[in-house]
Design a protein around this nucleic acid. Structure first.
Lengths: 221, 221
DNA sequence: TAGATTGTTAATCGATTAACAATC
DNA sequence: TAGATTGTTAATCGATTAACAATC
């Protein structure tokens, strides 16, 4: 099979990682009644170089107007479409402690491309409870999840349960996991996992040490 | 001032981001009684190219032995040192819901370079409670935090409180924030923030869509 | 010694930035 | 028209991978 036949989207991962930040800033602008913006303004709000903003946005097509800038509403739609947020992705939440409940009731989720499709917990004391209109199911019920391949699994359990839950999600056919538990998890290769609180904390420590170790580093005037 | 005078550590950010993963795998190996490993073994466990492992580790100095591999215990110490985990960084946790309590009691934190130095909450009902030997203080007390510049602030509040808490942490002099709340926060430039659950979810959606849109993509045999 | 595996150099690849013509 | 700002091309920079000499 010739490689040229592949429908190479070719939108770089580095760009994808920044799109949510642009979307966030555009949302704030829209709320404030701002109709139009520029690559410079977006760059300053997100903290990147303006040329990078233009390059990133050019990957979505030509949605700006030379000499004028970008229409806030239009660009919001284009980025949302690119991220796949114009359709609804089902999300299941495992672990209905405070974080899980916060996520289940989070208006931002349901209004922004995600719909909470299931709540699961291992604790008999909470199974059967209703949270934001959904009933908490026993963890064993995850095996019967419909549309598992489309579903994002969110782990909001204590650290000790994270790996077991991850294994159950994978067994149920889920291929995208957001791990909010304070423990790293290991999953087979095709599964996409994001967030690792322990690692992020260690990266913070490194940056802190680097700053501490080089206190005389010049600051731009 | 000549640029060559700077004590350029030069350890790439991309490498730093992978060091916690190596550390995690080494920990699992040590627990299993494995004494020695290789770049190939580490690479497979973490899911990267073996040459990348060697390149990453070479940034820490020459700690492997040609023809033999890496000593698990020794490499663990070297990576920990590089990440700054051989000293203890104080951590304060804001929001003592389930996630906050889980983090406060998390053995992994206190044993791995972090010590919980303070607990804060805005809810009068929980202020004064004791969690893992520490008393929960009112949020206003954050202003008197000693060693704020060394401290990592962890936000584990509901989404609605995240930005206010972030502002209070920054005002108290904290420069490193781990944001576990399900809401993005905006902070001034010198502050280092990690984790943004909303953005991570959107990136998961993008990857999912890309996979869905190109179902015929060849899988390696 | 023969086999194994590192550490490093060179080649490749991809991402960032600079610069500017296109054009509103 | 003059001024502004995009979209894109080319230059730079950094990160990944391949390859292999060093060496245990």
């Amino acid at each position: 099979m010739p490689a040229t036949d592949l429908p190479r989207r070719g939108i770089p991962d580095a760009t994808v990682a920044r799109l949510p930040a642009y979307l966030r800033v555009l949302g704030i602008m829209a709320e404030a009644g701002v109709r139009s913006t520029s690559s410079l303004e977006l760059a300053q709000a997100v903290g990147v170089h303006p040329a990078k903003v233009r390059k990133d946005l050019s990957h979505l097509g030509s949605h700006g107007v030379r000499g004028v800038g970008y229409d806030v509403a239009h660009l919001t739609v284009e980025i949302s479409r690119e991220l796949g947020l114009t359709r609804d992705w089902p999300v299941v939440i495992v672990g209905l402690g405070n974080l899980g409940r916060a996520l289940a009731g989070h208006a931002g989720l349901s209004s922004r491309g995600f719909s909470v499709a299931g709540l699961f917990d291992a604790d008999p004391a909470v199974i059967g409870q209703s949270v934001s209109g959904l009933t908490i199911s026993p963890m064993s019920a995850i095996a019967d999840l419909p549309r598992a391949a489309d579903t994002v699994g969110v782990i909001a359990t204590p650290a000790a349960a994270a790996q077991v839950v991850a294994d159950q999600l994978v067994a149920a056919g889920i291929t995208s996991i957001l791990n909010c538990a304070p423990a790293a998890i290991v999953v087979p290769a095709p599964v996409d996992v994001r967030v690792d609180i322990a690692s992020e904390l260690q990266i913070l420590a490194f940056h802190k040490q680097r700053r501490t170790a080089a206190p005389a580093l010049a600051v731009a005037p």
